[in-house]
């Protein structure tokens, strides 16, 4: 944890510096007759972030924060595995949306999570993986008039049937 805290503070300090540099693309000073330039507010806030990172490092060096006093690892093997499986599932879920549509991606994500991570029965998995996307389709497309991504052309027959029901 100790190593992790200072590494994260360093990373955030670098990000703060990047934001400061990026802010200077617009004027950061006071322009007569126009007030502060467009970069003024983000530049000084990023500078505030940088100073905070300095203070976090100072507290770390003095051993004031709980993480700086701990030699435990950030996570054990089980924790890393869980986060990779769940986080990876989420990344795959979002990556699949432009391919199999929002509703298709929801169904696949639910099958993956409920069946393979949650170890629920196939019956429950399939009921939820079918009912939820269909319920959300009617809620968003019919009631809220919000169109979700429809994926690649091969999903079109599904949408044709569903839109026939609505209209």
């Amino acid at each position: 944890m100790r190593q992790g805290e200072i590494s994260l503070a360093g990373l955030l300090a670098l990000f703060s510096l990047y934001l400061m540099w990026k802010s200077t693309e617009l004027p950061i000073g006071y322009i007569r007759g126009q007030g502060p330039g467009g970069g003024f507010w983000p530049f000084w806030l990023s500078f505030g972030m940088l100073l905070s990172c300095g203070a976090i490092a100072w507290n770390w060096w003095r051993g004031k924060s709980p993480a700086s006093q701990s030699d435990d690892p950030i996570m054990d093997a089980f924790g890393w595995r869980t986060i990779i499986w769940v986080g990876g599932g989420l990344v795959a879920f979002v990556a699949l949306i432009p391919i199999v549509s929002m509703y298709g991606a929801i169904a696949l994500f639910l099958i993956y999570y409920l069946r393979f991570l949650g170890r629920h029965s196939w019956l429950l998995t399939l009921i939820l993986a079918t009912a939820l996307p269909i319920g959300l389709f009617f809620f968003f497309e019919a009631a809220m008039l919000i169109s979700m991504p429809q994926g690649m052309p091969f999903t079109q027959p599904f949408f044709d049937v569903m839109y026939d029901i609505i209209y």
């Binding site: 769940v86 989420l90 879920f93 979002v94 929002m102 929801i106 994500f109 639910l110 999570y113 409920l114 991570l117 949650g118 170890r119 629920h120 939820l128 939820l132 959300l136 968003f140 979700m148 991504p149």
Partner: peptide, 16 residues
């Protein structure tokens, strides 16, 4: 294990 994926789905779909 049922609530968690539902929250993830609602988060993604609500975010969009």
């Amino acid at each position: 294990t049922i609530l968690a994926p539902l929250i993830f789905v609602l988060s993604i779909v609500g975010g969009f």
